[in-house]
Design a protein around this nucleic acid. Structure first.
Length: 585
RNA sequence: CGGGUAGUAGCGCAGGGGCUAGCGCACUUGGUUCGGGACCAAGGGGUCGGAGGUUCAAAUCCUCUCUGCCCGACCA
């Protein structure tokens, strides 16, 4: 491509709001442009980079036997009503009516669509297993888009769907994806880890998220450097320590100005872990069949030294959504905020107690009277509720597997894989006839990678003061030919020769000064830069600079295509050498 | 959806009741330069986010509204 004819231009200054390096460079180099909150265009450079990513994805998906297809972005609402997600998903899914007043949705994922198709295609065990994928646009009306392509509303996603006879089949294809995803990310040059995850709205059982560890990430990953345990904090476990003792008689005590655990512990001169912390949420429960919604107060108790993990709590009570409770809602059940506990509470609420509270004795808890707490409360004796793990794992807590201290790190979710089971096939009657002539629901899995987000993470991982420096496997071009000489003949010739040799060339034939051309080359970050200038041309040579290392060499004009090819091959080989082949056991 | 902050030229910003709305970069033309964001000269480009109001007079004050960004809630 001749830069004199390139659609985009580079920006010297970062547009307001570009607050991470990767995002700033993608904008300045002309890879992407913003159109609205969470809505971006891929300019030719960005488009080429994502096409490279897609090609890698395709080759790895084909390698595990997946077939590419494409499903519509607009779905009739009917299929979403069948699974109930029409009702259980809130405003994140956009809805509209067509001219005949039929309910339609913009699909934010394609379990419904693919299951609808599959129930017509899959009729016998002989037609299983099956595996399809698409790389397609999703619209999710996220309430808070952020950080450029990291969190957007419209995005391109690889999504694949597997159909199996049974759990063993699903297990195999799940493992295939587990491995393929590591290969995809590593072929793009992006370091990633897989962590156990919450399945959220997907509703399956087993799931993993692929994380790019970075401070710009929004997820917190809990991991054990000792034994390798990893999980999203939303579901991360940790080894809990209990301090059982003889139950003592409950006793009411004045505790003025002790609305928080810290204040309470200090006033009583005790360790926070001798208290029970009470957190109030309101869960909304949506009927999958008709969309009717019911709100219920949830009282969650953890030991005073711990925090409540909302997603764990949400899973424990099977709520569709949780929000903090208002004071009136708490008071309506006879509890006093700041001095609250389920003891003596009345009305309709769900009490969930963390194991740490259930297995501790004589904890201090609220007396539901301003300024008073109870000493020596005991779960089971003084109040009841569901026991579950609802405490949040933190940095330094003990690993659930080996007991060594856990670490916490921020990460960006770049992919996830779900074992769906029969959640969708049962709801949508997607069954096959087995060897015994019986109709059995198909066992499904779904798997996804955010393509744009992957590019954003790569831009975050590969940059320096000058701009981007994407790996050769995903860079929009392989070589950036910068001509500094007036006469165009030699440069044109090199440009053509390189193209004939099958090399992707960005050719800076603009009438710009050397400084501008070099700065733009650094910004765009093509892995190799050929400099054609009078200095070396006198000796019949050109210079080649490696963007990543800054290393410069020079070659004879006639060798240039060959040398460039060799260098590209070297860089590609380096990436191939580092392909991660990790299996799930 | 709550809190904060900002909308003035393509990008970054200044101006905060008064006369023709500025600056840097980018852009156009001419000339000089020509290996790390050149220089000189002459230019083009704005309904100051939108609507309503106050005023002799509004980019500037008031009301409403839209939009972006950040934090939180939320989410993949």
């Amino acid at each position: 491509m001749r830069m004199s004819r390139m659609f985009s231009k580079t920006l010297r200054e970062a547009p307001n709001g570009a607050d991470t390096k990767g995002y700033e460079y993608l904008l300045r180099a002309g890879y992407i442009r913003q159109m609205g909150a969470g809505i971006f265009s891929l300019l030719p450079l960005g488009y080429r980079a994502t096409e490279k990513i897609k090609a890698i994805i395709r080759s790895e998906m084909e390698a595990i036997g997946a077939e590419e297809m494409e499903m519509p972005v607009v779905n009739p609402a009917d299929i979403w009503k069948e699974t109930g997600r029409y009702y259980s998903i809130d405003k994140e899914m956009s809805r509209f009516k067509d001219r005949n007043n039929r309910d339609m949705v913009l699909a934010m994922t394609h379990e419904e669509a693919v299951t609808d198709i599959a129930r017509g295609e899959v009729d016998s065990y002989k037609r299983l297993p099956r595996l399809v994928y698409q790389i397609q646009t999703k619209w999710r009306d996220d309430p808070r888009p952020r950080a450029g392509l990291i969190r957007v509303r419209e995005f391109t996603m690889l999504d694949s769907y597997s159909f199996d006879k049974d759990a063993e089949g699903l297990d195999k294809v799940y493992k295939d994806h587990y491995k393929a995803y590591f290969r995809i990310f590593s072929r793009c040059g992006l370091p990633s880890i897989a962590v156990g995850a919450d399945s959220g709205m997907m509703g399956g059982k087993i799931s993993h998220e692929y994380m790019y560890l970075s401070p710009i990430g929004e997820d917190t990953i809990i991991y054990c450097p000792e034994c390798g345990y990893t999980a999203n904090r939303q579901i991360a476990k940790f080894r809990k320590e209990y301090f059982p003792e003889e139950m003592k008689a409950i006793e009411k005590k004045a505790t003025p100005e002790s609305k928080t655990i810290e204040a309470l512990a200090e006033y009583l001169g005790i360790d926070p872990r001798k208290t029970a912390k009470c957190v109030f949420m309101v869960g909304s429960f949506i009927n999958d069949k008709n969309g009717e919604e019911e709100d219920k107060l949830i009282v969650a108790l953890v030991r005073g030294d711990l925090e409540v993990e909302e997603s764990k709590l949400s899973n424990a009570v099977r709520a569709n959504a949780l929000r903090p409770a208002h004071e009136e809602e708490i008071e309506a059940c006879g509890m006093v905020p700041g001095y609250a506990s389920p003891i003596g509470a009345k009305g309709d609420f769900i009490c969930v107690v963390d194991e740490t509270v259930a297995n501790s004795n004589n904890l201090v808890a609220g007396a539901n009277e301003a300024g008073y707490h109870y000493l020596n409360t005991n779960f089971g004796r003084d109040y009841n509720g569901t026991v579950a793990d609802i405490a949040s794992a933190r940095d330094g807590f003990a690993c659930p597997v080996c007991g060594k201290p856990l670490k916490a790190s921020k990460g960006v979710e770049i992919g996830n894989i779900f074992q769906l089971g029969t959640r969708y096939s049962e709801a949508m009657n997607c069954t096959y006839q087995d060897e015994n002539g019986k109709q059995v629901p198909v066992v499904m899995g779904s798997y996804g990678i955010g393509v744009g987000r992957l590019l954003a993470c790569l831009a975050e991982e590969y940059n320096d003061e000058g701009g981007l420096k994407l790996p050769v496997s995903v860079a929009p071009y392989q070589v950036h030919l910068v001509s500094l000489v007036k006469e165009t003949e030699i440069a044109d010739k090199i440009y053509e020769d390189l193209q004939k040799a099958g090399i992707e060339v960005l050719y800076d034939d603009r009438k710009e000064t050397a400084g501008v051309k070099f700065a733009d080359a650094d910004l765009i970050g093509i892995p190799l830069r050929i400099t054609l200038g009078n200095r070396s041309l006198k000796e019949g040579k050109v210079e080649v600079k490696i963007r990543e290392t800054g290393e410069t060499t020079s070659f004879l004009l006639e060798d240039i295509a060959e040398e460039i090819k060799a260098e590209i091959a070297r860089e590609q080989a380096e990436i191939d050498r580092n392909i991660v082949n990790k299996t799930l056991d």
